[in-house]
Amino acid sequence: MSPQTADAIKRFLHAAGIVVVLVMILFPLYWMVAGSLKTQPELFAIPPHWTWAPTLDAYREAIADSGVLRALGNSLIVTLSAVALGLVVGVPAAYGIARYSFRGRREIWFWYVTNWMLVPVVVLIPFYLTAARLHMINNPLTLIAVYQIFIIPLVVWLMVDQFRSVPVALEEAAQLDGLNRFQIFLRISLPLVTPGLAVSAVLSGIFAWNDLLYAFILTPGDEVRTAPTIALSYLGGYTIPWPKVMATSTLVTAPVIIGGIAIHKYVARGLTMGAVK
């Protein structure tokens, strides 16, 4: 075999391998969207129909079902509020950790990371008991609070990284101009890290939006349940309206898939708390 042929084979295998992985990743997604555009008999046709007259009936059904829209709205409110709270408390913390040396800094930092890896039931059971005592079950505020367990570590980690990249000289110059630390933080550093703010907002938003376990236990009520919970709620019935389930699933996953793609460069680094570059 000539070196050219060997190289051509190598190129082909490389491309073929990538295509296989792409198909494995995208096929379930295709199946979900395709299913949402089919009727029930079409969805279960064997052999499957690879071409069909798409119908939006399933989406009409899903949207007509007030529960779905309400759940999407609830998820939106909870996610936006939880992310906003996480940013408001997490970003200054990141600045403090990035720019100061003080006793306990290392311990605080590791403790934040530990919270990201925590087994959720350790927090869920006491949260449930406390919320029940305070009549806070089925209150979105409870979810907004409990999500800080993973949002704060994500935000703090990503933002420490961002503040590190702001040149210290810039802040020293501001210091000479008579600005105090808080003014420097707000007027000099914060505007320079807006891209990082967007990334940490999206990344932590994805995890808040996707959560099933906490929402399932803490906000089970019809009025307050979130998108992942509503997607599961159809399963109780005798016949499952699969096109409607797939339409709901598509609506639920569209924001997180778009958000994930927008920040794909930062996902590995964010989820491992900076253990990799």
């Binding site: 190598k10 491309a15 295509v19 996707n210 997607a231 994930g260």
Partner: peptide, 28 residues
């Protein structure tokens, strides 16, 4: 170094299984 377009596409698509709602993965 091969197939830059496919590599770029894969890099983007790898994030999908991570970002997609796990409850929906279960339904699918």
């Amino acid at each position: 170094q091969h197939s830059p377009f496919l590599r770029r596409l894969l890099q983007i698509c790898l994030v999908i299984p991570i970002a997609i709602t796990p409850a929906v993965i279960g339904l699918l």
